[in-house]
Write a protein that binds this DNA or RNA. Sequence first.
DNA 1: GTTGAGCGTT
Length: 260
Amino acid sequence: MSHFGRTGPPDITDTYSLLVLNITFRTTADDLFPYFDKYGKVVDIFIPRNRRTGDSRGFAFVRYKYADEAQKAVDRLDGKVVDGREITVQFAKYGPNAERIDKGRISESFSKSSYRSRSRSPRRRYRDDYRDRDYKRRSHSRSLDRYDRDRYRGRDRDYRRRSRSRSRSDSPDYYRGRGRGRYDDERRGRSRSRSQSRSRSMDSASPARRSPTPRRSASPHRSPSPRGGSPDRHSGDRRSPTPHGVSPTDRPADSRSQSP
DNA sequence: GTTGAGCGTT
C-alpha cells in the first residue's frame, strides 16, 4: 500500500525517470518499490495501466532523486528477476509531457538540451525484430490487439476525418471524440457500430449496386478514347508526359506535319 | 485464468 499512483506527478523536475520493462502484469509499484528503494531514494513510481480493465501494461516508471542512484538501480536491477520474471530497467527517453529528458533526468530547459543531437538509437532495434513482432501479432496475439486497435483506431479515424470534410456535420460525436482519450475506443466503437447500422439503412435506400469505381482517374491520359485504336497498349504504368500520339483528341493543331 | 513489445498519470 503506497501512495504511488494515487496522485499526479509530485515533481518531475530534478528527478530521474527509469523505465522498467518486462515486469509481470501483476507486479505493482509497491512490489517494485522495495527493489528500487533499496538502491536509492525513489521519489515516485508509476505503472501505466489500462483504463478499462485496470491491469498493468507490463512496464513501470520509477523516478529517482539522484542520477547516481538511478544509474545504480539500472545496473543492479536490470536483469533482476522480479515476481518470477526478468525485468528490464533503463532510463526513460520520453517524458510525460513530451519534455526533453537527458540521461533520464527531466529538464524543463528546452533550448538548453536542443544543442544535443537528436540522433538517439531507435527504440525498435531493427526491422527484423519489428517484423517478427508483427508476424507474431498476426499469428496469434489478442492481448496487444486492444492496444494496437486503439492506435490504429485513432489513425483510422483521423484519416477518415481528413478524407471527408463533411463528416463532421453528419457525425456529432466528432467533437466529442476530440477531447476523449484513446481509451474510449469501446464507447466509440459502439457508437460507430450504430453509425454503420444507419449507413446500411441508407445503403438499402440507396442503390447499393453502385459502381465500385465510377472513376478510376480524372486524368485524361487514362481515359480510353473511343476513337483511339488501342489506348490500352500504351496506357498503364507508362505515364508519358508527352501527349503527342498518345491522345489523338489532344492533337495540337500545329502547322507541322503530324498526319498525312 | 490467458498475453509480452514498449515510454507515463493529475
